[in-house]
Amino acid sequence: MKHDDNLKTLNVIARAPFNVYYQGDAQAVTATNKVGEFDILPGHADFFSILDPGEVVITTKSEPIVFDINNGILTARDNEVMLFVNM
């Protein structure tokens, strides 16, 4: 049961060198890369991507976190999503 609960959330860290945009649980992360817009949901396969400039949306239980990026790298692994942006 606990395992299933874990699958329902992502642990997200979104930061720029001097700024922490978000750190905590989330339901989904939406961003854009060369292929197009994509969503990371709980249980997503391990994923590494260079992000295109645009909007990133982190869907949380409360308000969604939305911010613009100039560049970035996203990694997703075992429901842990790291976003390194505006570098």
Partner: peptide, 26 residues
């Protein structure tokens, strides 16, 4: 994380190059 179990977009080489450039800048 290898290309066998991880999706790399674009390629692993391009991502590594981007990360190195970023780390040098940092």
């Amino acid at each position: 994380m290898t290309a066998e179990d991880t999706i790399f977009e674009p390629s692993l080489d391009e991502i590594a190059e981007q990360m190195e450039k970023t780390m040098m800048t940092l």
